[in-house]
Design a protein around this nucleic acid. Structure first.
Lengths: 225, 225
DNA sequence: TCATCATTCAATCAATATATTGAATGATTG
DNA sequence: CAATCATTCAATATATTGATTGAATGATGA
């Protein structure tokens, strides 16, 4: 067998597992993965969102595809990348969990940056789903428009963070608002909560983001394919 | 804040998560982690088991401790390393799951090496626990003696793989045997099953290993601290 | 208090990873 | 069928990682 490692199947397996972990072992790649957790995307868009050159983004994507984290397909003249499997989301979540518990540096960032911007408890998925069904809450999606378009929470209104200050009148002052974005540590929702609290809105943050909501099997809406 | 990344909290978090993933991104380190999932161990023992020089093993251990995967404590004149948290086991399991589903190389090794040695379905944890309670099965632990000593399945008998051929008379021929070792892809149990089947024993493999059994909250036994 | 010895550190070299540039590819679409 | 253009490849420079050697550390235990 061609892939048979000279050191035997044990080493070959560890090497295989390590290849997957290596693919996760770079900040830019994790950022790309978070973006792809929202929906599939072209190389160009990913490069722009992650602040990379196109060639560099392409390299990272190829590496992650080889590691089995991503799949790609052609759509017209662009290639769309996407997560290969929901299990990749679980892997990212497990990684976050270990890092947030055991890595001093991560705990520091979370404690120093995030908590001061969100003293209140975030809202859990289940709780939000219940209150949403009862019509008791307004859901605010602060991701960019295109990410919202490919999938969002039901009845959510989309105001990207950058436009928030100029579109305050679209938000209710008599109901609680729940903001969300890409994931548990996506800064967009934190910033939105901080900004809107200062303006007197009643707003909390969803404990995680759209991909986790969707993966949990909760209902989602979609504007366009 | 000293760890404040110039590119903001988003990059700092991704970098932190990446540090954990990097620590998992090397075959020798994954092997060390599998060993530490059995029980805490000194640098010397880990180096020997993983086939590394002591200085090299020490370097890998330091890196993983920094990434929050391990903790160390002094015991007499040696330093014992151990997993920092059960969440590390979950992370390793998530890594295996993605690799075995999506990485062609891993699927090939599993298909080519493991399946031909274990055509039968492995036994699940719950099923084994039930049959063990009813006294219907003999459990065989093929790990080295010291790993067995620090923790094993109840009523398991310990015959390290290397001694198996010379100690066949200790095994029953009238009852089913279930063999296990360090984890889902630990080769020891696969080899034991193959060897004993050829000798006419009725034997199957536990679907995973001792750390998973223990983490699932099932009963364990211990001979010495 | 001091000799011991497991572990860590420091220095080095080879190997690998990352980012940049510019050219090549190749499927699409008019 | 040819022009277009998103993506990939190739080549390069720099940075990081991994393994080895030998010396330094420092807590133990006599």
């Amino acid at each position: 067998m061609s892939s048979q490692n000279p050191k035997g199947p044990k080493s070959a397996l560890f090497a295989g597992f390590a290849e997957v972990a290596k693919a996760l072992g770079q900040g830019h790649r994790l950022e790309i993965l978070e973006l792809l957790a929202q929906s599939e995307r072209s190389v160009e868009v990913l490069a722009e969102r992650a602040g990379l050159s196109i060639a560099n983004a392409s390299q990272h994507l190829r590496l992650m595809r080889r590691a089995g984290l991503l799949v790609s397909r052609r759509d017209g003249k662009r290639i769309l990348y996407g997560l290969s499997d929901p299990a990749v989301l679980d892997l990212m979540a497990a990684l976050r969990r270990v890092a947030e518990r055991n890595l001093a540096e991560v705990r520091e960032v979370i404690g120093g940056y995030f908590h001061e911007r969100d003293a209140l408890e975030p809202v859990g998925r289940r709780e939000l789903a219940r209150r949403l069904k009862d019509g008791l809450v307004t859901v605010l999606d602060v991701r960019p428009e295109d990410e919202f378009g490919t999938g969002h929470l039901p009845q959510a209104i989309n105001i990207p963070l950058r436009e928030l200050t100029s579109r305050l009148r679209e938000l209710p002052r008599d109901r609680e608002i729940v903001a969300y974005c890409r994931g548990p540590y996506c800064v967009l929702a934190f910033e939105a909560v901080a900004l809107l609290r200062r303006r007197g809105f009643r707003i909390r943050r969803l404990e995680d983001g759209y991909p986790e909501w969707k993966a949990a099997g909760l209902p989602v809406a979609q504007d366009r394919r």
